[in-house]
Write a protein that binds this DNA or RNA. Structure first.
Ligand SMILES: [Mn+2]
Ligand SMILES: [Mn+2]
Ligand SMILES: [Zn+2]
Ligand SMILES: [Zn+2]
Lengths: 155, 155
DNA sequence: TACGATATTGATATTTAAAATCAATAATAA
DNA sequence: TTATTATTGATTTTAAATATCAATATCGTA
């Protein structure tokens, strides 16, 4: 099994466990959305609208509300992250591993997103929180700017 | 003159200069909004609605749209920052000096906001950006968690 | 001071993403 | 199979942000 397929199976198990625990139901729609999301959007940041339009191509009967609710469900059970990059639309990305954690650098010109992780920043953050006696549940860090190719295009 | 008064005067000059440069007009409404914002909301993070309700008390004829537009104007000319803490409402805070820069820690229980600045984080950020050849225009960092008093209240 | 050009105001309407509603339908356990 | 309960898809509602527009205020100039 490829690492990608294994990763997908692990998320699937988390999802199934969550469904069982919360006494929800397995449905064809949830299967379809799960598969499309984890097959096509690994490492990407997709809006509800985008995923809906994509899925409609092969499954025209699936409704927008179902895609919307299913992505929220993915987030709820910890297999997807919700991101907000300041354009007013929520974006979702598949979580790649239980432990992964990263932030984003967004080109305000072309929309390109570069992911990064930095241990030093993370430990500084925890230190700041500790100093102020905050119990951190999550944090977000985004860098906005112009990427090199957009900068070249301008000259 | 107190340091607070001096600070306010400096922002006023920036605002006046901006109005002159862009050929805008000085109005009673802008004066009122400027004064309330810089008198009552230094170090705070106010929504348009909140500031509007506040101003209405003494100036019932001022419209919501004017408050909304004036805060955007403050932001535009660099005397206010717009913040988004994930509740779907934009917040504005007066800028205290040309050079100040800080981030926020938000209690998800009581809404308390603690500001912090950390040079180490800032330089890490720039390093990450440099590595990826991004020209940084701005960045945001927020820590969400539970403050100590809310933690105590829970026990 | 009066005039004319232009920006501003306040009320209201529009836009948009997110969230809620609900009758019909599907999934599950007995 | 049946009863129960969750889900779906269409639609409506909500709420913040933004746009519109006629009436009015500002400001340079005569
Ligand atoms: Mn990402
Ligand atoms: Mn602040
Ligand atoms: Zn770019
Ligand atoms: Zn608190």
């Amino acid at each position: 099994m490829t690492p990608v397929a294994k990763r997908k199976m692990e998320r699937r198990k988390t999802f199934n466990d969550y469904i069982a625990k919360k006494q929800l139901k397995s449905t064809k729609q949830r299967d379809i959305i799960f598969n499309e999301f984890f097959n096509s959007y690994m490492g990407r940041h997709v809006t509800v609208e985008e995923l809906y339009e994509d899925i409609k191509k092969n499954n025209p009967s699936i409704g927008f509300a179902t895609v919307y609710r299913t992505l929220k469900l993915f987030k709820e059970c910890g297999i997807a992250s919700e991101r907000n990059f300041g354009d007013g639309k929520a974006r979702y990305e598949p979580i790649r591993s239980e432990t992964e954690h990263h932030h984003h650098m967004i080109c305000t010109e072309c929309g390109q997103i570069v992911e990064f992780a930095n241990m030093q920043i993370e430990s500084c953050l925890l230190q700041v929180a500790k100093l102020n006696e905050f119990n951190v549940s999550n944090h977000k860090l985004e860098i906005y700017g112009i990427c090199s190719s957009c900068r070249e295009a301008q000259r």
